[in-house]
Design a protein around this nucleic acid. Structure first.
Lengths: 195, 195
DNA sequence: AAGTTAGCACTACACCCGGAGTGGTATCAA
DNA sequence: TTGATACCACTCCGGGTGTAGTGCTAACTT
């Protein structure tokens, strides 16, 4: 008996993200989602046929909510196209992702879970690839300095930087993290464009 | 009733690492460890007072097993100290970590679990800091090119590169990953030393 | 405007799975 | 013989699933 209230469904998925971040992939149960969403027990059961569906749709939901950030970036088409601008954008990016910590953590949990669920891995791969391609396309069309490798290397390093901050915040002081972003852009660019 | 057979204890911790990687932090139960280690049910209960102990000791065990890799690196004190050498070392590093995938994944699970367990976070922070400091010290004493920031940025980017390979291998083709390592070292060094 | 119906929120129940912890027994070594 | 440890079995407990059943509400019909 599938329920069709989209608003409620979205609320359940948001709750699922919170649960993923707070309890881990294994802790994502229908009951836990019900509880987190403050709806009566059994509700999530009625909206999702099984755990797999809940998992994959939760992954999609994270990107739905992270998406608007891209729109914000798109508003940054004006302004200079130099290194300072890119540095600023990267600082903003890190801040934006960090501001939705449960989303980032949920995505990580899903990555680990996808080790065991080929179907989930496919969905995640497709989504993250689309995101990456989007970033590459944006970077190029915005005329920002740096080539494809620049963007990819930024992606790698910044992701782990955020991971570091969210999981072991005491390892690198805030100030050092900030400096690393600046230095990273600097070095990737100075040597980059001619490659 | 604590048992003291160190060999058996190590075998149980190795099993715990496998379980962490395969089932997630939440899947790490005494029974699962028993089963994976092929010992009778209840054995892990006798060796570890509670789950926390099992968790933290498993984290330590990963580094015990990853440690020898550092020793191998130490054997690399001879040879040139140029960019090509560093590139080679980084390729080796990635290969070495990738060769022990369950260790890497277990560590990731522990990071996520440490979000909920302050005690575990402290232990992990200390260990990873020691590892990082070790890398920094090695890099400097070996006279390899690049400064502190170089090492830190390598750490960030390469970690996520490995994560990418282990969780969503279809996202980046092997060849591209390989090229990224080379490019990363290249760009970090060309702009680096004067900073 | 009243009656009818369809869908959904909510509740309760029956079933099942899996893990914790512990006490007892067998086995081996000093 | 005695002490320690490996091994096994048993009981208790918690939590999750899926579904059947009940009432409410809102929209549609005539």
């Amino acid at each position: 008996m599938a329920r069709r209230n989209e608003e409620r469904r979205a609320a359940l998925l948001d709750a699922a993200i919170e649960v993923l971040a707070a309890e881990g992939a294994r802790g994502l149960t229908f009951r836990a989602v019900d509880q987190r969403a403050a709806v009566p027990a059994g509700t999530a059961s009625n909206y999702f046929a099984n755990r797999d569906e809940l998992l994959t749709q939760a992954g999609g939901r994270v990107y739905e909510r992270l998406g608007p950030g891209e729109a914000v970036l798109a508003a940054g088409f004006d302004g200079p196209r130099d290194r300072a601008r890119l540095t600023e954008l990267m600082h903003d990016l890190v801040a934006r992702v960090t501001a939705f910590p449960t989303g980032f953590l949920a995505l990580l949990e899903l990555r680990l879970e996808s080790t065991r669920r080929p179907e989930l891995r496919e969905v995640l791969t497709a989504r993250i690839r689309a995101d990456l391609e989007g970033n590459l396309a944006y970077h190029e069309s915005a005329g920002l300095p740096g080539d494809r490798s620049t963007v990819l290397l930024l992606y790698l390093a910044l992701n782990w930087l955020v991971l570091e901050q969210l999981t072991l915040p005491e390892l690198l002081p805030d100030q050092q993290r900030h400096g690393l972003v600046t230095t990273l852009v600097e070095r990737l660019l100075d040597a980059g464009p001619q490659a």
